[in-house]
Amino acid sequence: MIINNLKLIREKKKISQSELAALLEVSRQTINGIEKNKYNPSLQLALKIAYYLNTPLEDIFQ
């Protein structure tokens, strides 16, 4: 099972779900679904998340 630290990292960087969704060009519901482990992001989306949060991919999804 993948450990998902997206919410923790996003909140630590003081970025809202809506702000991150806008940067990634996805819906806020997509971010919410990823954070609640209801949706697994594509590799492309996971890499974009890591880029915009300036955090290694391995720290977000373990």
Results as ranks from 00 to 15, higher is better:
Ala50Ile: 04
Phe61Val: 03
Ile34Leu: 08
Pro56Tyr: 06
Lys36Asn: 15
Arg10Glu: 02
Thr55Asp: 02
Lys7Asn: 04
Asn4Cys: 07
Asp59Gly: 06
Ala50Asp: 01
Gln29Gly: 12
Asp59Cys: 14
Ile31Lys: 00
Asn32Gly: 08
Gln29Val: 09
Thr55Glu: 10
Phe61Lys: 01
Lys38Asp: 09
Ser27Lys: 08
Ile9Ser: 03
Glu19Val: 09
Glu58Tyr: 10
Leu57Lys: 03
Ile2Val: 14
Lys14Arg: 12
Asn5Cys: 11
Asp59Glu: 14
Lys48Trp: 06
Leu57Tyr: 10
Ile31Asp: 00
Lys36Gln: 14
Tyr52Asn: 04
Ile60Cys: 02
Ala46Thr: 06
Gln29His: 13
Leu8Cys: 14
Tyr39Ile: 15
Ala22Cys: 11
Lys12Val: 07
Gln17His: 03
Asn5Pro: 01
Ser16His: 04
Gly33Ser: 15
Gln44Trp: 11
Asn32Phe: 05
Leu6Gly: 01
Gln29Leu: 10
Lys38Thr: 13
Ile15Arg: 03
Ser16Ala: 06
Leu8Trp: 08
Leu43Glu: 08
Ser16Val: 03
Ala50Arg: 02
Asn32Tyr: 08
Lys13Ala: 12
Ser27Asp: 11
Leu24Asp: 00
Ser18Leu: 11
Pro56Ser: 08
Tyr52Ile: 14
Gly33Lys: 15
Ala21Gly: 05
Leu20Phe: 07
Ile49Ala: 02
Thr55Lys: 04
Phe61Glu: 01
Asn37Trp: 08
Lys48Thr: 04
Thr30His: 10
Glu11Lys: 11
Pro41Tyr: 04
Lys7Cys: 08
Lys36Met: 15
Ile31Leu: 14
Glu58Leu: 11
Tyr39Cys: 12
Ser42Pro: 12
Val26Gln: 02
Arg10Ile: 04
Ile3Asn: 12
Thr55Leu: 07
Ile49Arg: 00
Ser18Arg: 15
Ile49Thr: 01
Thr30Gln: 07
Asn32Leu: 09
Asn54Ser: 10
Ile49Gly: 00
Ser18Phe: 08
Lys36Cys: 11
Arg28Gly: 05
Ile34Trp: 09
Gly33Gln: 14
Ala21Cys: 04
Lys48His: 05
Ile31Ser: 00
Lys12Ala: 14
Thr55Ile: 07
Asn4His: 05
Asn5Tyr: 07
Asp59Ala: 11
Glu35Asp: 03
Arg28Val: 15
Phe61Asp: 02
Ile15Gly: 01
Arg28Gln: 14
Ile15Cys: 07
Asn4Leu: 05
Leu23Thr: 06
Asn5Ala: 06
Ile9Cys: 07
Leu45Gln: 04
Glu19Phe: 09
Tyr52His: 12
Ala46Arg: 12
Lys48Val: 04
Val26Phe: 03
Lys7Phe: 05
Pro41Thr: 05
Glu19Gly: 09
Ala21Ile: 03
Ile2Gly: 10
Glu58Thr: 11
Ile31Phe: 02
Leu53Pro: 03
Met1Val: 13
Phe61Thr: 02
Gln17Val: 14
Pro56Leu: 06
Ala22Phe: 10
Leu47Asn: 08
Phe61Met: 04
Tyr39Asn: 06
Asn4Gly: 05
Lys36His: 12
Asn4Trp: 02
Ile3Lys: 14
Leu45Tyr: 01
Ala22Arg: 14
Ile3Ala: 08
Asn54Asp: 15
Leu20Gly: 00
Ser16Phe: 03
Gln29Ile: 10
Gln29Phe: 07
Pro56Gly: 05
Leu45Lys: 00
Leu53Gln: 00
Ile9Met: 07
Ser42Thr: 13
Glu19Asn: 08
Glu25Ala: 12
Tyr39Leu: 13
Lys36Leu: 13
Glu35Asn: 00
Asn32Asp: 15
Asn4Phe: 05
Ile49Gln: 00
Ile34Glu: 01
Gln44Pro: 09
Lys48Gln: 08
Lys12Glu: 11
Leu45Phe: 05
Leu53Trp: 02
Asn5Phe: 10
Val26Tyr: 02
Lys38Asn: 11
Ile3Gly: 12
Gln17Thr: 08
Leu53Cys: 03
Leu43Gln: 10
Gln17Leu: 10
Asn4Ser: 04
Lys7Thr: 07
Ile2Tyr: 11
Thr30Val: 15
Glu35Trp: 00
Asp59Lys: 11
Glu35Cys: 04
Gln44Tyr: 10
Lys12Asp: 08
Ile49Cys: 02
Ile3Asp: 08
Arg28Asp: 09
Lys14Ile: 05
Gln62Pro: 15
Lys7Asp: 03
Ala46Val: 06
Leu6Asp: 02
Lys38Pro: 04
Glu58Gln: 11
Ala46Asn: 02
Pro56Arg: 11
Tyr39Gln: 09
Leu6Lys: 00
Glu11Ala: 08
Glu58Ser: 13
Pro56Cys: 07
Asn4Ala: 03
Lys36Pro: 02
Gly33Asn: 15
Glu19Tyr: 09
Asn5Gly: 04
Arg10Leu: 07
Tyr52Glu: 05
Ser42Glu: 05
Ala21Tyr: 03
Lys14Trp: 06
Gln17Phe: 03
Leu53Asp: 01
Ile60Ala: 01
Ala22Ile: 10
Lys12Tyr: 09
Ser27Met: 04
Gln44Phe: 10
Lys7His: 07
Leu6Ala: 02
Leu23Ser: 07
Leu45Ile: 07
Leu43Met: 11
Lys12Thr: 10
Gln44Glu: 14
Lys12Asn: 11
Leu8Gly: 10
Leu57Pro: 05
Tyr51Cys: 09
Ile31Glu: 00
Glu11Val: 09
Ala21Asp: 01
Leu47Phe: 07
Gln44Asp: 14
Pro56Trp: 04
Asn54Glu: 14
Ile15Trp: 05
Val26Trp: 03
Thr55Trp: 05
Leu57Glu: 02
Glu25Leu: 11
Lys14Gln: 13
Lys36Arg: 14
Gly33Ala: 15
Lys38Gln: 15
Ser18Met: 12
Glu25Val: 07
Lys13Trp: 08
Leu45Met: 08
Leu53Met: 06
Leu23Asp: 06
Asn40Gly: 12
Asn32Pro: 01
Lys7Ile: 05
Leu8Gln: 15
Ala50Trp: 04
Asp59Thr: 09
Asn54Lys: 10
Asn54Tyr: 05
Tyr51Trp: 12
Phe61Tyr: 04
Leu47Gly: 05
Leu43Asp: 07
Leu45Asp: 03
Asn37Leu: 08
Tyr52Gln: 07
Ile60Leu: 10
Gln44Ser: 13
Glu58Trp: 11
Ile15Met: 14
Ser42Phe: 04
Gln29Arg: 13
Val26Leu: 05
Ala22Val: 11
Ala46Lys: 15
Glu11Met: 13
Leu57Ile: 13
Leu47Trp: 06
Asp59Trp: 07
Leu8His: 14
Glu58Lys: 12
Leu57Trp: 07
Ile49His: 00
Asn5Trp: 08
Tyr51Pro: 00
Asn54Arg: 08
Ala22Gln: 10
Ala21Lys: 01
Glu58Asp: 09
Leu20Val: 00
Pro56Gln: 07
Asp59His: 11
Asn54His: 09
Arg10Pro: 01
Ile3Phe: 09
